[in-house]
Amino acid sequence: MIHIFATEWQPLLQGFGQTLLCSIIALFFSLIIGTMFAIFEIMPNKAMRVIGNIYVEVFRNIPLLVITMFFFVVIPLYVVKISGFAAGTIGLTIYTSAFIAETVRAGIQSVDGGQMEGAQSNGLSFWQAMRHIILPQAFKIVIPPLGNQFINLVKNSSVLAFVAGFDLMYQGNMIANDTLQTMSTFFAVGILYLIITMPLSYYMRHLEKKLA
């Protein structure tokens, strides 16, 4: 395994960078989009609730690979040419945001319902109450499951390997195929994933303790 790091550090490093970049972009946008759809799902307006529901159920229940492939092979035919990296990152963002929406919705609903009414009767609008009263409490509750989703996101970024996104898994497959040292290569890849996911999970735990 040390041998693999020594001889193949260049592609591994590139893969590490791509995986990290994709994860950060997808994490940022899926958190925003996910929270947005979570709010849609509990809005008083029925049309918005239906939109929120459809988004979550559709994208949560089909495989990530299918979403990503759609962006990689169908979008270039009719809309615009996009790279494997972009297709993978968009696919990952859409997929994860559906899971985050579901997580955040559950968090919002576990906050006592009376608080929303109370805030609104004190003159706050739906959005103000959501932003200042409900969401801060909801996020506190959902940090651990959200942490699970973030870790899933980093690992799911390996979908890039299927659309030539030059990520860690892609490079790992390349190296394993050229050198036939499959086991050691995958060990090396596993350690590089841990370098991203471990601090992330520790940070989430730290956040959980801080807000508790």
Binding site: Y193, T197, S201
Partner: peptide
């Protein structure tokens, strides 16, 4: 275990 890719 949670932090390792399931594939691996």
């Amino acid at each position: 275990i949670r932090n390792l890719p399931l594939l691996l």
